[in-house]
Computed example of a mutant assay.
Amino acid sequence: MTPDRSFKVECGYRYRFTTRGSVDSIVDFYARQARENRLVLAKDTRDQFPYTRMLGFDEKGGVRLLFVQIERKVGVNTATVTFRTRKAAASCN
C-alpha cells in the first residue's frame, strides 16, 4: 500500500476548561458539534472508568479527529479537547 502523500502537514490544537456543568451537557455539546461537522462517534467509554469519560470522533479517511476527555470531580468537571486535521498545505496557517 502506498502512503497518501497529498497531505503535507498535521495541524491541531488542544484546550482545557473547568465547568460546573454536567458531564452529560459537555458530551451533548461536543456530540452535536461533531455531527454538524460530519464527524462520527468512534469511541465512548461511558461509565467504563469511574472518574473519566472519553469520546473520540473521526471523519472517514482520518483527515479530522476530535477527542474529548472529561475528568469528573465533586462539583466540577474538567474537559480536555483535542482536534487534529491533516492539510495539503505546507503549514497550519
Rank of each mutant, 00 (worst) to 15 (best):
V81M: 07
I70L: 05
K60E: 11
P50E: 14
M1F: 06
P50V: 10
G21R: 09
L39G: 02
F83P: 00
T19I: 04
R46C: 08
M54E: 13
V74H: 00
V76S: 08
A89T: 14
N77S: 08
R72S: 01
R35K: 14
P3S: 13
L39A: 03
R5F: 14
R32G: 09
R20F: 06
F83E: 02
F7L: 03
F7I: 04
E10T: 15
R46Y: 11
F17Y: 15
Y13C: 06
V76Q: 10
R16K: 15
K60S: 08
R16S: 13
L41N: 05
R5E: 14
G62S: 07
F67D: 08
E71Y: 02
K60F: 06
Y15N: 10
Q69V: 08
F67L: 09
N77V: 00
V40G: 09
F49Q: 15
D44E: 12
F67K: 08
A34Y: 00
R5L: 15
R32M: 08
T85I: 00
V68A: 04
D28G: 08
Q69R: 13
N93T: 14
R35C: 00
Q69C: 00
K8C: 11
K43T: 12
V76D: 00
G12P: 01
K73S: 08
A90Q: 10
D44G: 04
Q33K: 12
M54A: 12
T80Q: 06
R84K: 14
I26G: 03
K87W: 02
D28L: 06
T19F: 00
R38S: 14
D4P: 02
T85C: 00
S22A: 10
T2P: 09
D47P: 02
T45N: 01
K43Q: 12
A89G: 11
V9N: 11
L41K: 11
V9W: 01
N77F: 03
V27D: 07
F49E: 15
F17K: 01
Q33W: 04
S91Q: 08
G21K: 09
R5N: 14
Y51W: 07
D4Q: 11
T80H: 03
Q48P: 03
F49R: 14
T45F: 00
A89F: 05
V9Y: 01
V9D: 07
A34S: 07
R38G: 02
A34K: 04
A90Y: 07
I26E: 00
R46V: 14
R20I: 10
V40A: 12
G75P: 02
V27A: 08
R5C: 09
C92D: 08
A88Q: 13
F49D: 15
F67E: 06
T82D: 05
E71F: 03
V23D: 05
S25T: 14
R46W: 09
D24P: 03
G12F: 01
S25A: 13
I70N: 01
V63F: 02
G21V: 04
L65H: 03
K8T: 13
Q33C: 06
E36N: 15
F67T: 07
K73P: 02
V23R: 06
T2W: 01
Y51C: 05
G21E: 12
G75T: 08
V23H: 03
V23C: 06
Y51R: 15
T19Y: 05
C11R: 10
K87S: 15
V40F: 07
V9T: 14
K73Y: 00
A90R: 12
V40W: 09
D24G: 10
S22N: 09
G75I: 07
L66D: 02
